[in-house]
């Protein structure tokens, strides 16, 4: 049977399947066994309590949903006292996600969350509805470098940086995050978007803009993961449009060491564990002994093949 375990730096995970921040919580234990997941990823937390954005917070479009939640939460103290213990009832590593509009506060958050029980600090520097200097640092390399450096200096925990697909050149941003000391790059957050209702001429979301989430985005994020993985030496986690085991395989072939899953868990609450089962069966069917063999295993060094032959040839 295939060995599904992966390592993200020093963090050991039983398999490469993790939930995506904000689309998951310990409450999913009502439907699935959380101990089977590669990691547990908490919703992004801010320092002070926040109510978040006006409703409606979600709308369907022809090809996916747009959503804008606005990072509601009860603040870091409540998070440490009440939410961390909920996650510690389960065994997978706990990844906490943080966000702030200022570099100093970002560093403070990372410092205050460097407590036993927290295994990874993920800095969400890419919330699409924040502006470039106000929390969406990952739109520009200088801002990325500055904020990641400050967070790095504030914590010894493994530090993951979640990047934005809205940046013009994600490769240079990824390199800036690596240089600043990130241990892993999480690619990507959601695509900034807009829906206007034609019945009343108003934006469909209470916050006007929202992040687009759709399996249609997978090829775009996959391309980003591929480009970034080629340029950096730290691990990459691919997030965007994963709905089945083959999508996990595809991200790993592009160079990702693991994936994150959001929307599919709304669609099918049992999706995460089903995808793990499927991934195992997929590897076993092909005699793959270790899932890590897939990382970066895309065959693209021999591209002079006739395109039709390439498209139809087996593995």
């Amino acid at each position: 049977m295939v060995d599904l375990s992966v390592k993200i730096g020093d963090v050991e995970m039983a398999n490469p399947v993790t939930p995506a921040s904000g689309a998951f919580s310990w409450e999913y234990a009502d439907v699935i066994d959380l101990n089977r997941l590669g990691g547990l990823v908490a919703k992004t937390i801010c320092k002070e309590p926040r109510l978040g954005n006006p409703t409606p917070r979600m709308a369907e479009t022809e090809a996916g949903i747009i959503q804008s939640i606005g990072l509601p939460g009860k603040g870091i103290e409540y998070f440490i006292d009440h939410i961390v213990p909920e996650y510690k009832k389960f065994t997978p590593p706990l990844i906490v996600s943080v966000s702030s509009e200022s570099t100093e506060e970002f560093a403070e958050l990372a410092r205050d969350l460097s407590i036993p029980g927290v295994d990874v600090i993920e800095c969400n520097i890419s919330c699409p509805t924040r502006n470039t200097t106000g929390g969406n640092f990952a739109m520009q390399s200088e801002h990325t470098k500055e904020v990641v450096s400050a967070i790095r200096a504030a914590t010894d925990k493994p530090l993951w940086a979640k990047l934005s697909p809205n940046a013009g050149d994600i490769v240079s941003i990824a390199m800036a995050a690596e240089e600043a000391g990130a241990d892993c790059l999480v690619i990507a957050n959601t695509f900034l978007s807009l829906k206007i209702r034609t019945d009343n001429f108003r934006p469909a979301l209470g916050n006007k803009f929202g992040g687009l989430v759709s399996p249609a985005l997978k090829p775009i994020v996959l391309r980003m993961v591929y480009q970034v993985a080629k340029q950096v030496s730290i691990p990459v986690i691919g997030i965007g449009g994963v709905t089945k085991a083959e999508d996990v395989v595809e991200y790993m072939l592009a160079g990702a060491s693991a994936v994150g899953i959001g929307y599919a868990g709304f669609r099918n609450p049992t999706a995460l564990t089903a995808i793990i089962d499927d991934l195992e069966a997929w590897c076993d069917d092909r005699g793959i002994k270790k899932v890590t063999e897939l990382i970066g295993a895309i065959k693209d060094d021999d591209m002079e093949m006739d395109t039709l032959t390439a498209a139809s040839s087996g593995v």
Binding site: A23, F24, R57
Partner: peptide
Amino acid sequence: EQIMACGLGACYICVR
């Protein structure tokens, strides 16, 4: 009633 996504308490889409 409110518009929902996860139905489980994770996404905070359904708040009132």
